[in-house]
Design a protein around this nucleic acid. Structure first.
Lengths: 350, 350
DNA sequence: AGTTACATTTAGATCGTTCTAATCCGGCAG
DNA sequence: CTGCCGGATTAGAACGATCTAAATGTAACT
């Protein structure tokens, strides 16, 4: 065993000070690289730190300084690759800024969200990045975090009215514009009967995407049939099950703008089961550009949201907010990019 | 604005004590549900806590009690769905036990791993769950964390010899057994010429899986040709590129046990490009059971590792270790399960 | 020598909690 | 009246850092 391995208790500033016959204060100055301290003593102290295997106790420092070096990251679904990439981006940027990420997953439960938030708050994060659970509302979140903690909402808006005095920041995807791009792309390919498939009507992202779809259809003076809007949970399985609903009424659509990639991949399965070849007999688009999108059969036309970059952006935004707590709240809308692949074919030349 | 919203500074035990004309100590007892305190005063204090919007400062408490309520989770690649699921499982179980997760991503860089570990340690986690970066070694990890912090290694072993006095726990997948199951399954389907495809020879998980493959082949008295082992990075793209190597020598294999799902999916692409239909003209298996495996064309026979359950298990193991720091170190090997799908067809009846 | 200036070091309070060892008080036995 | 018990409360020192204000030492300038 190497001689510097600490045997028993944690070694503190006092131990180092004693070892050098100096005061705590001086050692503390050394740790923080103060120019006040004599370079000879600095060297002595640094040697001792190494020798005793000192590790800085940031909690103690934060307590005294009334600062924080952590950010809470609360996600509705970490298992979703989109949020996993996002989290990786957040952690990377926070880490570079010397902050640490306190993770919390809510599994889409507003109840758990409350519990997770208050548990994380007890550890005194400097700020919070929150991607809300499905039926989370502004009132409860406010009760849990108070109006004092900097909060950045990501991806979804909160239900209920959010009080004006809590100036929370927002980082949202440009859902409406993205869906409009997808729809316009299908129209440019020659489609006239286009459905909007998947998602729940009361989710903010879904209604925004639907709005973009409507916008594009109206701009092209194309009709929208009510039975061309199919709701379903945003999972592959549900989407596959709802496929038949697409063809229940007439006129039948020749293409669909899907709520997201998961839904689109599910729809592909459903189409195959009906003997329709996606990307040949029927066109469709997704949203998110998850890894599987590029590998589908056929590869999926979708909107790239660059989740890792969003994570980095979210981290930067919350760090900025820490710098200027009083600044006006920011509403950021991140652009999305259309990625054209083979699933968005022209309509069959009937 | 509701009247209880705190206006200015953080409210502390002192504020509550003053509000009730009691001492800090009594309030502290109330917080921790001590039976010592009179039930009437308890009610008064709880009212005041609610009124002032008190939030517990766990860092301060941890400082005084010399305890910790956090666990560091250090991952080589959070963007990988396998690890994302794992992280979700860890966080869930830790949360239920009142612990919080300190996240750190290393992006497969041993250098970043060092930085991340020492940064996290400054926040005084009670223990560490580490899925090491690719070329991480025991010596460096020891230097960063010391021998005192409970550490659980997940998924990969560390390079170098790990010192016997640092009793670190391990949670590994049963790679060897899994690969053996896959190989036996192919043999049972009638294959005799089976290759082992993908992965790097120096990765511990790869060599374990290869060993399982060899075991099954030898048990069935089947020959193994040297040119049936193809190495490549565990990504889809690399795997697709290496497909031709499989058919370079004679006799050519009729099936392949792939290092993992990513490699298997890449191989499918490569087979398609050569005009071979995976699951009909050539059989293959994967490892991990990622979400895409079930949706491939054809669906992939693979080994399910239940990453979320592994995360829960890892959390339980590290919490157990916190209870009994002196107990002998545990080496846990998690079972894997063969999931048979269509990619593992019988050989063509030539 | 006395004063000032500067560089370096430090004693001691402090952050918000917990813990130890009292203290206080009403009742009850002797 | 005294002593003791037990329930309820508390003063004050921790925990490991930082910060303020002051102390120390040394050199330079009147």
């Amino acid at each position: 065993m190497s001689s510097h391995t600490p045997i028993n208790r944690k070694v503190t500033l006092n131990d180092i000070a004693a070892g050098c016959e100096l005061s705590r204060a001086t050692v503390s100055l050394v740790l923080r690289g103060s120019p006040l301290v004599n370079k000879h003593t600095r060297a002595r102290v640094e040697e001792e730190l190494r020798l005793q295997g000192y590790v800085y106790n940031r909690s103690a420092a934060n307590l005294r300084r009334r600062t924080s070096s952590s950010i809470a990251l609360v996600l509705n679904d970490l298992a979703n690759p989109f949020f996993a990439e996002f989290a990786a981006g957040v952690d990377q940027t926070l880490g570079e800024a010397g902050f640490v990420t306190l993770l919390g997953c809510t599994s889409e439960s507003a109840t758990r969200e409350q519990a997770v938030l208050s548990s994380l708050l007890e550890h005194g994060p400097g700020g919070i990045i929150l991607s809300p659970a499905e039926h989370s509302n502004a009132h409860d979140v406010l009760a849990a975090v108070g109006a004092r903690s900097p909060l950045l909402l990501f991806n979804r808006e909160l239900g209920g009215t959010l009080p004006e005095f809590a100036h929370w920041d927002q980082l949202m995807l440009d859902n409406q514009h993205g869906a409009r791009l997808a729809t316009e792309h299908l129209i440019a390919r020659g489609h006239q009967r286009i459905a909007f498939f998947g998602g729940h009507r009361d989710s903010s992202s879904c209604s925004q995407r639907h709005a973009g779809y409507v916008q594009a259809m109206q701009a092209a003076r194309l009709p929208i049939e009510p039975h061309w809007r199919i709701e379903c949970a945003p999972t592959r399985l549900e989407a596959a099950h709802q496929t038949s609903a697409l063809f229940a009424g007439t006129p039948t659509p020749t293409a669909a703008v899907c709520y997201n990639d998961a839904v689109a991949l599910g729809l592909m399965l459903g189409l195959n089961q009906r003997g329709l070849r996606p990307g040949q007999d029927f066109a469709l688009t997704g949203f998110d550009d998850i890894a599987e999108a590029a590998l589908g059969m056929p590869p999926l036309t979708t909107l790239s949201t660059a989740p890792r970059e969003r994570g980095q952006q979210a981290a930067k935004l919350i760090l900025q907010r820490l710098q200027e707590p009083q600044a006006d709240s920011r509403q950021t809308i991140a652009p999305v990019q259309l990625v054209v692949r083979e699933s968005s074919c022209a309509p069959p030349t009937a």
